[in-house]
Simulated scan of single mutants.
Amino acid sequence: MGASFSQFFPPHPTLTEANLPSQKGKVFIVTGGTSGVGLELCALLYYAGAKVYLAGRSEAKARAAIVRIKADSTPASGELIFLSLSLEDLTTIKPAVDAFAAAESRLDVLFNNAGVSLPPRGSVSTQGHELQMATNCLGPYLLTQLLLPTLIHTAEKSSPAAVRVIWTSSIVVDTSAPTSGMDISELTNVPSSQQKNYANSKMGNWFLASALADQVGSKGILSLTQNPGNLKTGLLRHAPWILGFATSPLLYPAKMGAYTELWAGLSGDLNVEDGGKYVVPWGRLHPAPRPDLVAALKLKDDGGTGVAALFLEHCERLTADHR
């Protein structure tokens, strides 16, 4: 209970624009960078001199976001570039990665920031998968795997843990995930409850962060998941009005969530051994993750329940044809 309480009422952020070192020469991708937390994160990185790719579906929204960020920045600092992709349509992801790889030889941090929450019941992706699972897990998983060559290449020339992949979870992991994190049967027998589907996708983000840490931690890449915080963003646009009304007093500006992601992506307090861990608002490691969820991250041979491995197999199977 205390760990959840501290996520509703976090201590002050320790990494902000006030003490963020120059990011000149570094390259970042932020999915969902045209609004909310993603836009605020892009702004922070741009102000610090980084080259930032805003990845999303709408070029018009990306151009508007770029204009807004530049208008608030004096003098101009980094670079802002639109990268076209739709996470819910797996066919768009490889072309996006190919376009990025044609332009860039390095990628310092991939922020898997974009997500969808509580869309209308029965919403599905272009490939017919439950929309939250597709947008929050399948698309980011495929994007990350296709970007690994560039991430690994960058890590070879960087200090350990400087290159990172940041996934986005939610406080529902603590408050709503069932024992062992997920009922794997619900991946094929999709629940009618959109709240349950959302919780599964957010637990899935932690599973994917942990699996990636096992996959590339030895190459010096740090993979983490994070709960950006309870925020006033468009993520709740599909939620029942009563939920928004009830939670409004506990919601913070989107920029605070950007501080959480900024710390996960750039804090010097983290190292490769922190791979697979969970970051909470406004930038600190989870003080007391649920033991059953930690066990779900481990294989049965290592004393865990092996749920994360089963989820990884599911994501690999559904995205394999889009490599």
Results as ranks from 00 to 15, higher is better:
75 P>F: 11
77 S>N: 11
77 S>A: 15
78 G>T: 04
79 E>K: 14
79 E>C: 09
79 E>T: 12
80 L>T: 05
81 I>W: 01
81 I>D: 04
81 I>N: 06
81 I>R: 14
82 F>C: 07
83 L>E: 09
86 S>V: 13
86 S>M: 10
86 S>T: 15
88 E>F: 12
89 D>R: 11
90 L>M: 09
90 L>S: 00
91 T>Q: 13
92 T>A: 10
92 T>K: 05
94 K>Y: 06
94 K>N: 12
95 P>A: 11
96 A>V: 02
96 A>F: 02
97 V>I: 12
98 D>P: 04
99 A>N: 13
100 F>D: 02
101 A>W: 02
101 A>T: 11
102 A>H: 13
103 A>Y: 01
103 A>D: 13
104 E>F: 06
104 E>C: 08
104 E>S: 11
104 E>L: 03
105 S>R: 11
105 S>V: 14
106 R>A: 15
106 R>I: 12
107 L>K: 00
107 L>E: 09
108 D>T: 13
108 D>S: 12
108 D>P: 02
109 V>M: 01
109 V>W: 00
112 N>K: 05
113 N>Q: 14
113 N>S: 14
113 N>F: 03
114 A>K: 02
114 A>W: 01
114 A>N: 05
115 G>N: 05
115 G>W: 02
115 G>S: 06
115 G>E: 02
115 G>A: 12
116 V>A: 06
117 S>L: 15
117 S>Y: 14
117 S>G: 02
117 S>P: 00
118 L>V: 05
118 L>D: 05
118 L>H: 00
119 P>A: 09
119 P>S: 07
121 R>P: 08
121 R>S: 15
121 R>L: 10
122 G>H: 08
122 G>I: 07
122 G>Q: 08
123 S>H: 01
123 S>C: 07
124 V>N: 04
124 V>M: 08
124 V>H: 01
124 V>Q: 13
125 S>R: 03
125 S>G: 10
125 S>D: 03
125 S>M: 10
126 T>A: 15
126 T>D: 00
127 Q>K: 01
127 Q>V: 10
128 G>M: 04
